[in-house]
């Protein structure tokens, strides 16, 4: 079995019963706009789901668990939008995600893409997420508006990692093409990067993330560093359950930030570790997780590296041992 087949074999088999008139979730969180910390409205629409996840999928991605697998009609998408607008209180930042690509016409029809975009045209930032495959002139032309930003999950700047560790649908050159197109049109790019995809030691993961941040900074206005968290029906989940994978340490998140932030100038570097401090997410020893997470959050909002000053715990030596061990053995010896 190759990696593609393996990932696929772990997927849920049949479409699940979801109410296609309800968004998956909506909430408000903090983000920044024009240099200030403001409220952000997050909307996750129910769609057919990511085309790649339906075929094979990435090793860490559990989006398929929320996907309907069957198309959602324009009428029902309209109802989802209405429900969202009822909740929307004019937050300055709006982030709209699907469990796939907002720009994929098979998930959201071109007409509905425009309807949704225009509904939020007054926000300061309107962010959608898409695979670079759908970042084309033809698709962008009707949707484009001043506040549009597109987030692309590049995950890693290494084709080898994309192929062997992530099982991504595209390669770095596809990202570059999309990024250059967006730059021409004047759409801001937000890039998502992974910290510690499977089949890597903690050390290799840090190195890959650092390389990737420096690379993505050339094209992005913002980079979000996403430490892996364990989602069901994924390869990472299977490895984790067999004791073959540990989510990254929070110290590693800080390590990557400290090493790259001074090199990337104005490009914003953020990290919001999902399930942070839990066994299923990036975590340290349990004693310091709360403080460390708070510092990472603060940095993400302020971009101020000094928030990490004085942060320490006895587990930092343990983490250093893990790095050293992985370094000398070429594989990681878990200590959880």
């Amino acid at each position: 079995m190759n990696l593609q087949e393996l990932v696929r074999s772990l997927r849920p088999e049949s479409p699940r019963e979801f109410d296609e008139t309800k968004p998956i979730a909506m909430w408000t969180e903090k983000d920044t706009s024009k240099g200030e910390i403001v409220d952000a409205f997050v909307l996750i629409l129910r769609t057919r789901g990511c085309y790649w996840a339906l075929n094979s999928g990435c090793t860490m991605c559990g989006y398929i668990n929320d996907a309907r697998m069957e198309p959602v009609s324009d009428e029902n998408m309209e109802i989802q939008l209405e429900k969202a607008l009822k909740r929307y209180r004019g937050e300055k930042v709006v982030k709209i995600f699907t469990s796939g690509s907002f720009l994929d016409p098979n998930e959201i029809s071109p007409e509905m893409q425009v309807r949704i975009a225009r509904a939020f045209k007054d926000a300061e930032r309107f962010i959608v997420e898409s695979l670079p495959e759908f970042v084309t002139e033809k698709i962008l032309e009707p949707v484009v508006q001043d506040n549009l930003e597109i987030a692309i999950g590049l995950e890693s700047a290494s084709d080898e990692v994309l192929e062997r560790n992530v099982n991504k649908s595209f390669r770095v050159k596809d990202y570059i093409r999309a990024a250059e197109l967006m730059s021409e049109i004047g759409i801001a790019l937000k890039t998502y990067l992974l910290l510690k995809p499977p089949f890597m030691t903690e050390n290799e993961a840090i190195e890959d993330a650092e390389r990737s941040v420096l690379f993505a900074a050339k094209y992005s206005s913002e980079i979000s560093l996403n430490p892996i968290n364990i989602q069901s029906h994924t390869l990472v989940n299977r490895l984790w359950k067999r004791g073959e994978y540990r989510p990254p340490w929070l110290w590693s998140v800080i390590e990557v930030i400290k090493a790259t932030k001074p090199e990337i100038g104005d490009v914003r570097l953020v990290s919001w570790p999902t399930a942070g401090g839990l066994q299923r997410g990036a975590h340290n020893c349990g004693k310091c997780d709360k403080d460390v997470l708070k510092a990472i959050e603060e940095f993400s909002l302020t971009q101020d590296l000094s928030v990490f000053d004085g942060l320490s715990c006895s587990c930092i030596d343990e983490w250093k041992d893990v790095l050293q061990t992985g370094d000398s053995l070429g594989f990681e010896w878990r200590i959880d």
Binding site: L3, P198, F199, R238, L239, R242, E244, S328, G330, F331
Partner: peptide, 20 residues
């Protein structure tokens, strides 16, 4: 003082990766 990684053939981590 010895770094086994430098001496022995690399085996991907974890086991499942080597399976492939």
């Amino acid at each position: 003082d010895i770094s086994p990684k430098e001496i022995f053939p690399h085996v991907p981590y974890p086991i499942s990766a080597a399976d492939l």
